[in-house]
Write a protein that binds this DNA or RNA. Structure first.
Lengths: 175, 175
DNA sequence: AGAATCATGTAAGGGGTTACATGATTCG
DNA sequence: CGAATCATGTAACCCCTTACATGATTCT
């Protein structure tokens, strides 16, 4: 989930404590993603080591040194690509897809709309796969049947919601 | 998730490799829970250390020694209690609740039915909480609105599915 | 004879957690 | 003056994963 930090730093360089405060607010991205402070600093380290971020030490007045991070070209490219790709597993909808949507919305309604369209296509294939699996079920295995029913229900739920998203994004498109 | 091993051992003592083979089959519990072999042995160790399991070494013919595990009274109690408690977070429905249901069904349709009823009650409170949170939303925060809508959709999906479960369990109740 | 299976593990590491260390600054 | 906040980390641990070690037995 490190990559989400890149989205927060896109366009506005920040230091670790800024990010921590931002992610401590109750709304926005923190509705779907939490991180603890020590792990945040570790993630910034590893993103710097893999070339997605660069930092510079800044002294403001007498306060402690700040390490301000900004995206590298490589980091920008990773991030821009990430928010344009749908998630490939249903279990990633709840957290990862919503985070992508958060960042895509920050970019533009068009970006968000395209993300939603791509996700709708993937979700449709999930549905077909589950339906196909249900054909080969042992008829007297009640548990297996219930498992597949639950998956179909969840997938349908996501599909309806994605349709809602697409609709409200189209309305906002002229903004 | 260690506790699921207790369910598999309830009534039929097995050794690690037996459990591994059982969990490698494509149907039943392995639809919702996977474990790799090395971790399985580690879990059996820790369940023995915390008093839920006891083991005895068995030699069959010339084959390698088997370590056969069986539930202790304490382990039995932990397990029986676990399958009678609903899950308290929506994110646990997909894996943990389905596993509980798997074991509850092994016990009896009544046990499963009661589990489903308890889960329905908890799920209803989730729904009310989400609806309450939606009242305090900043009106022009599109992302937050979409997040809550997605949660409501997922919760409703689970509710419908739980209703289906309750229905089909009632039909099987006389079996 | 070679491959797959039986059977139990160890070692290393990924990704996350909580608790704690440190020291300055600002707020009440 | 004491508490909260600013700012960056370290250390230990939990849960789980992959890869590998070991050695016997059964299948083809």
């Amino acid at each position: 989930m490190e990559i989400m930090l890149l989205g927060l730093l896109d366009g506005e360089p920040m230091h670790g404590y800024d990010l921590f405060k931002y992610l401590s607010r109750p709304d926005g991205l923190s509705r779907v993603w939490h991180i603890n402070q020590s792990n945040l600093y570790a993630m910034l380290d590893s993103l710097e080591q893999d070339g997605s971020l660069e930092s510079q030490l800044i002294q403001v007045g007498n306060s402690p040194m700040r390490k301000e991070y900004h995206l590298t070209a490589e980091g920008t490219q990773r991030y821009k690509q990430w928010i344009r790709e749908p998630v490939l597993h249903g279990r990633d909808m709840r957290q990862v897809f919503l985070a992508k949507l958060y960042f895509a919305l920050k970019e533009s309604s068009e970006t968000a709309f395209e993300l939603v369209q791509k996700q709708k296509a993937v979700t449709e294939t999930w549905k077909r796969e589950v339906e196909a699996s249900m054909q080969n079920l042992n008829a007297d295995n009640e548990f297996d049947r219930l498992v597949f029913c639950s998956r179909l229900k969840q997938i349908s739920g996501w599909q309806e919601w994605l349709d809602d998203c697409a609709g409200s994004l189209l309305l906002n498109r002229t903004k």
